[in-house]
Amino acid sequence: MFEARLLRGSILKKVLEAIKDLLTQATFDCDDSGIQLQAMDNSHVSLVSLQLRADGFDKYRCDRNISMGMNLNSVAKILKCAGDKDTVTMKAQDNADTVTFVFESPNQEKVSDYEMKLMNLDLEHLGIPETEYSCTIRMPSAEFARICRDLSQFGDSMVIACTKEGVKFSATGEIGSANIKLAQTASVDKEEEAVIIEMDEPVTLTFACQYLNYFTKATSLSPQVQLSMSADVPLVVEYRIQDIGHIRYYLAPKIED
């Protein structure tokens, strides 16, 4: 039997909001270490990797490894029925063909359960190599979401240039060109609002705004976002989910052919 119970049910609600526009279906791979989900978006351009560790749940039981193929639009609809303060439990019998979501209101007076059919998905699994990145930028996630939204009005690509002084986001298009420069925060008193850059060597790469704007749907999961860049390898946009895991998005840079 598989059962995962989370008092902070809003995390699962936010996770679905963060992936449902990019992926229509995905497999939740569960074992005794926790829940992993990895899937390419429908156009196979970007990759999403979610990890929710067992020790982050208030109760976690996984007698046998189980892979649950789900339609994420359906899961998102079900999780929309959960209150922000509800406890959410996911459970499934071993080799079951359905999964059940149980929502309990804080005062236990309202308990809802939703049973959903599972899908047989044989999605490809990709190996993500361990990579040392030339540049790593930690910044407020709301700031990054704002920059992606603003610059995508100017062009369908965004250039991210990282040096030890700071990071510059640029876009050009018919209506003109836009540049947003963020300096590295000098005195880091509030980590969550700081821009922190670790740079081995400067990097300038171009990315499709459309995908970056999909990634920023995860903004509500974490006050900070971490961008990791190296020449000619995919960008990693990571949102840490407090005390339980992370969601990482991978996108290859656009390159001159």
């Binding site: 156009s43 490809e124 990709l126 656009k254 390159i255």
Partner: peptide, 14 residues
């Protein structure tokens, strides 16, 4: 010409 390669070009299937 600027091209966008799919992620599979960079990460091998396991």
């Amino acid at each position: 010409k600027i091209v966008q390669f799919p992620i599979k070009v960079y990460f091998a299937m396991t």
